[in-house]
Amino acid sequence: MEKKLLEIFNTVLTNRSKEAIKGLTPNMHLRNDIGFDSLDLAELTVRIEAEFDIDIFEDGIINTVNEVFDKLER
């Protein structure tokens, strides 16, 4: 799952001409560390939902990679 998520994160980043990241760690902040803005988060949720069938922002905004893992493992 982590490998697939990293791939999705990097698709969103590179589509915006932002630099790809090498790996995901649980405490990474989606905005502050990875550099996602609201447009990126909107795209991220669509791509994650297409892959895992879960809308990670359905109940409000989450902030860290760990929270994404939590949503997907639930």
């Binding site: 589509n15 915006r16 001409s17 447009l39 909107a42 949720t45 809308d55």
Partner: peptide, 28 residues
């Protein structure tokens, strides 16, 4: 497409004759 972050998100279907043109290039 409906979206839980922004309400809606813009999507596109395109017919592209140049197979080497990538999405990041199109966005740029």
């Amino acid at each position: 497409k409906k979206n839980s972050v922004l309400g809606n998100i813009v999507c596109a279907d395109i017919v592209c004759d140049n197979k080497s043109l990538s999405i990041p290039e199109i966005s740029k």
